[in-house]
Design a binder for these strands. Structure first.
Lengths: 220, 220
DNA sequence: ACGGAACCGTAACGTACGGTACGGATGTTT
DNA sequence: AAACATCCGTACCGTACGTTACGGTTCCGT
């Protein structure tokens, strides 16, 4: 079996995964109103099978969130022999990757759904999204930040605080704007520029004297 | 002819405003499932009146968002005779006020609802929230930033970019976390501390040589 | 080949909720 | 006082959707 270990004990067959991908597609293109009938028709399966496999509607949607979360895991960014150029490059690639993720239609649709369910009692979708989004990237980036500090390239007291400063500079108001439907053009070139700007700002704040660029590196 | 739903200059009677406050209360304490029957019962009014006053459910909810937005408007932050202390103080108070707003239960509930509706076609609640939230505070803060630049205290090219840097440093990941249901303790003392930290970081990035604090003011 | 399990497509059921209609009570105008 | 407007409370209607049930088909094991 090539499937990676399943933390929640939930594993799905190929057919069921295809159904979950269908749910994702419906969420993206049609907004939150994903009906069981629409899923069954689009996935060419019977509603009876949906209920047998996922219990009820909430189970189907929860499984969809978990399924998407399981697909997002990417490689770490820590590395050996870290110099300032490698650190800056890693930070920029990390920022660009994250900007691309949070502005992607799938992420937007999924976050919208999780947020809309976060207010109701007995919903842990928000916690799942946080664990696989915000906190997962934190755990992936922090080793890089710590390595930068070990190498004398960064200067900060609390890794968590430094991380939050970095994602604040990278994300700014992007996430809330796309969630609220703002047509925010984030072409790859712009993402790359924003990632570099945020990284240089971060290095101005947390870099050591010999590593960081000058004050106000991009006049922003 | 009485007052039909007035899209442009919307003004409501005391009774209608009480109804809208009821909707806000229901949104806060019960999540997104605000039914017309629940509103009518809680507000002690008939559904017929709801439909007469607000047209339909979407009109009621849109009016609620506008009503809340009309209550948030606060004083401007521009002032004469600007020195570095006054500028820093204004920025800190602005940041603290905004952090308090975005972490308040009412704002969270309203944003959740607008976001859940942002995916469906024919919904402008997200645009309303953006206009009265993100863009409104931008128009209120930019004069202060421009004044700071005029006074030689700040150095940036684009006011919009500088503003986005500032709110990125202030908000960081707070908004997405509270929207997803993260129990984020934001006591007034912590808000004040975060506002000061973000402001000093911003002054490090955008302050002129003689005004800004040293590099890495808070080791974050 | 035969029996059974899994599954698809569709129909049917029950409920929730948006929207409408109506009787009765209260306040306002003439 | 009489006519009228406003509004509350409740009952009602139509629809959408979650959920269940069932007949027909395919596939697998023996």
């Amino acid at each position: 079996m090539t499937t990676p270990p399943d933390p929640a004990g939930e594993t799905f067959t190929e057919r069921q995964q295809a159904v979950l991908d269908t749910v994702l597609a419906l969420m993206v293109e049609q907004g939150g109103d994903v009906t069981m009938t629409a899923v069954a028709r689009r996935a060419s399966c019977s509603k009876e099978s949906l209920y047998k496999w996922f219990g009820d509607r909430d189970g189907l949607l929860t499984a969809t969130v978990r399924w998407q979360a399981s697909k997002v895991r990417a490689g770490n960014y820590d590395r050996q022999k870290l110099d300032i150029l490698a650190l800056r490059d890693s930070l920029i690639r990390f920022a660009a990757n994250w900007l691309g993720v949070i502005s992607s239609p799938t992420s937007v649709a999924l976050n919208r759904f999780a947020i809309s369910q976060a207010g109701t009692r007995g919903s842990n979708l928000g916690a799942i999204m946080l664990a696989n989004g915000r906190f997962a990237i934190g755990e992936r980036l922090k080793p890089l930040l710590d390595a930068g500090r070990e190498a004398g390239l960064l200067d900060f007291n609390d890794t968590e605080t430094a991380f939050r400063t970095f994602i604040g500079l990278v994300g700014r108001d992007v996430q809330i704007r796309v969630l609220l439907g703002d047509r925010l053009s984030l072409a790859p070139a712009e993402i790359e520029r924003d990632a570099a700007r945020a990284t240089d700002q971060f290095l101005t704040l947390c870099g050591t004297e010999k590593t960081g660029p000058g004050r106000n590196p991009t006049n922003a």
